[in-house]
Structure formats: structure tokens, C-alpha cells
Amino acid sequence: MTPWLMAATALSGLNVLLLAALAVIWGRNYRQFQSPMTLGLLTFAVVLAVENVIALYFFFSMGMLYADSGTAQAAVLAMRTLQFIALVVLTAVTAR
């Protein structure tokens, strides 16, 4: 696995952890308030976490999909980085 894909894999793992924290917070809020908005946020966290787990599976089992293209590897890393930044901000705001 190339350094680009190892970084993308690490970011996907961190994204799953951030999404788990958000799901716990939003799950508690949903049980307390029964708001459709918090249910939507909880669903968002679960779906995005599943997407990141699938990405991790592909990084480990099918790394050759990106093996020949440095551009594709850089794009995957850029997308995972942007997602990580967005989740850090969302987690910080939600945890307040």
C-alpha cells in the first residue's frame, strides 16, 4: 500500500470514530427529544460510517484499484481529508 492510500485508510478509520461519537450523541438526543431532525442526523452518521467501513474494506482488499494512478490516489486522499475536516468541525460543534 502506498503512503497516499495508507493516509487515506487512516483518515477513514478516524472518520468512523468521529461518526461513532456523533451517533452516540445524536442517539441520546433522539431518545430524549424524539425529534425528526435528530433522527435524520443519526441516520446520516450511520450511513456515512457504513460508507467509511466499506472504503476501509476496499483499501485493504482491493488496493490495486488505485495502484496504477497517482492522481486517483491523491484524489482519494483529498476526499478523505475533506470529509475528516468536516467531521471534526461537526463533532466539535455537536459536543458543545
Rank of each mutant, 00 (worst) to 15 (best):
M1V: 07
M1F: 06
M1K: 06
T2D: 07
P3V: 06
P3M: 02
W4P: 04
L5S: 15
M6H: 11
A7Y: 01
A8S: 09
A8H: 03
A10N: 08
A10L: 09
A10I: 00
L11G: 00
S12H: 14
S12E: 12
G13F: 04
L14Q: 10
L14D: 14
L14E: 12
N15D: 09
N15W: 00
L19I: 04
A21Y: 00
A21G: 11
L22E: 08
L22I: 06
V24F: 04
G27L: 07
G27I: 04
R28Y: 10
R28S: 11
R28N: 14
R28L: 11
N29S: 11
Y30C: 07
R31I: 02
Q32N: 08
Q32A: 15
F33P: 00
P36S: 15
P36N: 11
P36K: 15
P36R: 14
M37I: 13
T38W: 14
L39R: 13
L39I: 05
L42I: 08
L42M: 09
T43R: 13
F44I: 00
A45W: 02
A45V: 09
A45P: 08
A45Q: 01
A45D: 13
V46L: 15
L48M: 13
L48T: 12
L48P: 00
L48C: 13
V50P: 02
E51S: 11
E51A: 15
N52I: 01
N52F: 03
V53S: 06
V53M: 11
V53E: 05
I54F: 08
A55S: 09
Y57R: 08
Y57C: 10
F58A: 04
F58H: 15
F59V: 04
F59S: 02
S61P: 00
S61A: 15
M62R: 12
G63R: 06
G63H: 13
M64G: 07
L65A: 12
Y66C: 03
Y66S: 06
D68P: 00
G70L: 00
T71F: 12
T71Q: 07
A72F: 07
A72R: 03
A74L: 14
A75F: 14
A75G: 06
M79P: 00
R80C: 05
T81K: 05
T81Q: 03
Q83I: 01
Q83C: 11
F84A: 14
F84N: 15
A86V: 10
L87G: 01
L87M: 07
V88Y: 07
V89C: 02
V89Q: 04
L90Y: 03
T91D: 02
A92N: 06
V93F: 12
T94Y: 00
A95S: 11
A95I: 08
A95Q: 05
A95N: 07
R96D: 04
